[in-house]
Design a protein around this nucleic acid. Structure first.
Lengths: 198, 198, 198, 198
DNA sequence: TATGAATGAGCCTTCATTCAT
DNA sequence: CATGAATGAAGGCTCATTCAT
């Protein structure tokens, strides 16, 4: 149902992305379930029928938000993991990329966290879940090369916790830049587990 | 509207707590908004009228869940902060108490995280927000005494992130005990910031 | 979700039947699809929530209408086929019973005819379809004993056509009674195919 | 808005007929109301704008389907009634023509039956209703000449029932040809009411 | 007291139709 | 001419809550 002719398709995709971003913002503020379609229409400037040109259901917006969040990050992480940087640098770059991505997708990230219990449990969200797992596997691999751990799994979970919590308090343009936060996290990990630690 | 005679009041409170816990479990699984009152009735074995003997509105359940989560933890944290333990031990004990509390309130904690965007934004949730802030202030105080930081706020936020993320993956009776997790987190902090670090 | 205690259940069933009958009337007048739930609410005096105590969906009304139409008729037909009447009398009595049933379920019958294309094609209507087939098998059996046919199937289909068309024009209390119509149809069949014909 | 130059007008009419026939088929399968314009676009290969070149509204399709069904049949019936054939032969020929027409307009006939309750009740469908009545008057006239009846109206209604029901089960190329069915119906009528009957 | 029928605003979504491009 | 994005009223349905019994 999206247009097939390239020019129109491009315009359609552009518009849809704008719609998704606007909705991500509203969802981040009010919560997915607490946001009625009426509010989305106001936020996007569309009418009911208009919105449903871009998505078949409200839930699709959630899905597209997750895709916009995961896909570029996953790609970026793969590139970093594939490069041949020294392990500790690779970790640092990965965390930097991660937090810079979050900085530009704060709303998406907040929405993703909000609805995680759905995403983690429902079969139809398997795709998103798999991307998350793929990303975490990359982080784990980089971590493995960068440190020596009594319990690497716990270190990984600690890192995930720190980073995933960041959108709760991070404000772009605030005292801490995304890079400063990333380096703070990395430093903490390397101090505790880095091969040169102690 | 709750009974006033002590014996009856006690029974009422006991039953209400059971109701709240049952609802916390359902909310944790399905999300607050996605859980209809009909589902709560099934989960509690009550009828519509019955449930509304214990709470005036569905949202009250959310509030009671947060209270059950915050109140005992805050009390415990105050006691630890007030004791005269050496700073690093105080931190260790605080994190242990924290994670042991979470272990016994996994559902409550999951619900609290799920609905945080509501709690953080709406005026009527100020009470819960203040308790959270009070608790975090205590953690910050203990942290201050236990380490030396370039950026203590970031260290605090990192700790909050790690701990708050724990209910996403923690399984009681699993490989890692609550205490092991707590000590893992504490060790990481002390390795990075502890006065004896480096 | 209907009540389980006998007294309440009976009341529930009584009310539901009244609801179904009222809806059958509206559907007969305006068509199923052309009748909005709002119209049903007006016709039944219920509110939206009230109607949905008795049915889970608008389509359930269609199903219940078909059940109310088929079940008693099928039972009646089985009794007549099982009795030991002379064949030509059995046919006469069956057609009489049939038309008397239609006379008291004109709305139901009109609705059933209206939506037959759905009923005949969709898997979820198999139950209704099977009852129809069972009834027609009984008619066929009685027909077989009552006449001698070059093509009994065509005679059966002719009879079905005549009878099923009746609700299009029949008016209770009009010139023709249900019995008169029934006997007219039976006479025509026996004149053409009866063993004593010619 | 249709073209006025003869050549173009002819092409336009041809195309519109094809559109109407395609829509008749879809309506017959799924029901008029249950068929969205989107489905019609898929079935016809047109775009929204394209379809609305041939009809001003979805309902016009219904009207055109009825016209395509009634007009040639009415014409044919008038010719047969006007001819000077012996009465019983005239009846036979009329029923044959009728069923042969139905055979080639099964979809149209099914749609006409489906939506009869609309056609019979709504003022704006008077035109179609009148054609139906005109046709039935012709049938009645031929019937009158062909038989002697206790109740000719009931005989007419029986015949209408049989024939109108035929599209529910008739399959072209099946065991029974349209002519065989027609003759079966005629024979039954003549056996019961024919002047040479008894 | 405890029940569950009833409420009714609001939910998400559909779809026949129009019209700028 | 043809397209397909946009319209927006109306659709069927849900659900937290109340209150007569």
């Amino acid at each position: 149902m999206p247009p097939t002719r390239p020019r129109l398709r491009a315009r359609y995709d552009r518009r849809r992305q704008a719609v998704v971003d606007a909705c991500a913002h509203v969802f981040a503020e009010r919560g997915y379930h607490a946001t009625s379609v009426a509010v989305l229409l106001q936020a996007t400037g569309l009418t009911a029928g208009g919105l449903y040109h871009y998505v078949a259901a409200k839930e699709d917006l959630l899905f597209l938000i997750c895709e916009e969040l995961m896909d570029p990050l996953l790609e970026r992480a793969q590139a970093i993991a594939a490069a041949d940087d020294p392990p500790e640098l690779a970790l640092r770059e990965l965390v930097r990329a991660w937090l810079e991505h979050i900085e530009h997708h704060l709303d998406h990230m907040r929405v993703f966290q909000q609805e995680r219990h759905v995403i983690e449990r429902e079969p139809r969200w398997a795709q998103v879940r798999e991307k998350r797992l793929a990303f975490e596997a990359i982080v784990d691999g980089v971590l493995e090369r960068a440190g020596q751990f009594e319990d690497r799994r716990l270190a990984l979970l600690a890192l995930l916790g720190m980073v995933n919590y960041t959108p709760m308090w991070f404000r772009p343009g605030g005292r801490l830049s995304a890079r400063a936060v990333a380096d703070g996290y990395t430093d903490q990990l390397l101090a505790a587990y880095g091969r040169s630690a102690r």
